[in-house]
Amino acid sequence: MAPISILSEEERRRKIVNINSETVTNTTSSYFPGHYPGEDHTWSLSKFKNSFRVRFHQNETDNASFSLIGIDASIANAFRRILIAEIPTLAIEYVYIEANDSVISDEVLAARLGQIPLTASRDGLRWLNYIPRPPQGMLGEDSGKPEDDREPKDNDTIVLKLHVKCEWKDGKKKGAEGTPEELYEHSNVYASDLVWEPQGRQEEMVTEKEGGGVRTTNPRILLAKIRPGDEIQMVCHAVKGIGADHAKFSPVATAAYRLMPTIDIVKPILGTDAKKFARCFPKGVIGFEQVTKEESQQKGSGYEGNAGEKKAVVKDSMRDTVSRECLRHEEFQKKVKLGRVRDHFIFSVESTGQIASDDLFIESVRILRGKCRALKGQLADIMR
């Protein structure tokens, strides 16, 4: 038998952000020292270890969904920002064009090449150095030259070559009828046409046993279309960068979080009202159960005389999108309370394919830990 009320008033007041028909209330966290008399809410590592939990809902190579329970919104948002803008990845930065007979201009084709996600072995990507970009026009600190004149090295630059020439297929000639695939050879230029040329120690350090070395995450990305006699020949230099430098370096297509929804049915919703109530939510959020004989005999329960009738119960509140639709109907007034748990964050991370989605979160933890160590060191210097 599912309970009618999920949370007590005290629990709701402390942990739940209230979602009302027109407003959102109780948004501020009250767990800080001195707020509740006789209660100690000072932060401690042992309390954090006991309360913090990670729960995975989906774990695929390119898509992960998991919950972080027991942390503050500022920490959850730090992870989100790091995922988007601070995890280094590989992308084409410099394009040296020798021939481009396609209808796409040089600068547009170079921009398209920069948007292709590149990947390699996990250890290989870590071996490559990330060199922070100075603001445009400033000199590089390492060489004393403008950034574009920095000499590439095997541990910071990947060389990719693209050379494609379109020709007539055997037996075909000008004026023949048919589709481009039937008439031409190499009329479509794909990401798979980019060929990695290892430099120095790269073949040893970057190559993995399965999948080869540096490669595109999706070989079927279309770059350009050319016709017989047209040729594209260029050399590309890929470097590591972060999303804060340029969006092409961001390793995620989506990195977002939402608070865990709560649906608290405080008064019975029965029969046709229960069916209507279920339609106010996404499929799977609300289910039905029969009122038991014991419930129908309890005075003041709201089930008196309704044994065997269907009642609405919450099956899976995580599926809810908090649309407030149920609050717009008069028959549900004062029967349901909507909210969100302020310390339960449901993350959705969709990788572009360069780094596995669950590894991305581990990388964000590593980067945040490094930031904390740096801040701790700076504070120690100040206190000396």
Rank of each mutant, 00 (worst) to 15 (best):
E309L: 15
V313F: 13
D320A: 03
R324T: 07
K315E: 06
T292I: 13
S301A: 11
R324F: 05
E295S: 04
K299P: 00
S301F: 04
V291I: 15
T321R: 12
E309I: 13
A307E: 15
Q298R: 09
E294L: 13
M318V: 11
S301K: 02
K299D: 03
V314R: 02
V313A: 10
T292F: 08
K311I: 11
T321H: 12
K315P: 00
S317W: 00
N306W: 12
C326R: 00
V314W: 04
K311V: 07
K299S: 06
D320H: 00
E325D: 07
S323M: 08
E304S: 08
G302K: 02
R319K: 12
R319H: 10
S317M: 05
A307D: 13
G308P: 11
V313N: 05
E304A: 07
S296C: 07
E294V: 12
G305I: 15
V322A: 08
D316T: 07
E325F: 08
N306P: 12
V322L: 13
R319N: 11
K315T: 08
N306S: 13
D320I: 01
V314G: 01
S323R: 09
T321A: 10
T321C: 15
E304D: 10
V314A: 06
S301V: 07
C326K: 00
K310L: 15
E304Y: 07
R324M: 09
E294A: 10
V322R: 02
T321D: 09
C326M: 06
S323L: 12
C326E: 01
K310W: 15
S296I: 05
E304Q: 10
E294T: 10
K311T: 08
Q297R: 03
A307M: 14
K310Y: 15
D316S: 06
V314S: 03
Q297H: 03
G300R: 03
V322K: 05
D320W: 00
K311A: 07
G305T: 14
Q297S: 05
N306R: 15
V291F: 06
M318T: 05
E325H: 11
V291C: 06
S323D: 09
E295C: 05
G300L: 04
V313E: 05
K293C: 14
K310A: 15
S323G: 06
R319C: 06
S296Y: 01
V322T: 11
Q298Y: 09
G305V: 15
A307V: 13
K293W: 09
S296Q: 03
Q298N: 08
V322C: 09
G302P: 00
V313G: 02
Q297C: 02
S317D: 02
G308K: 15
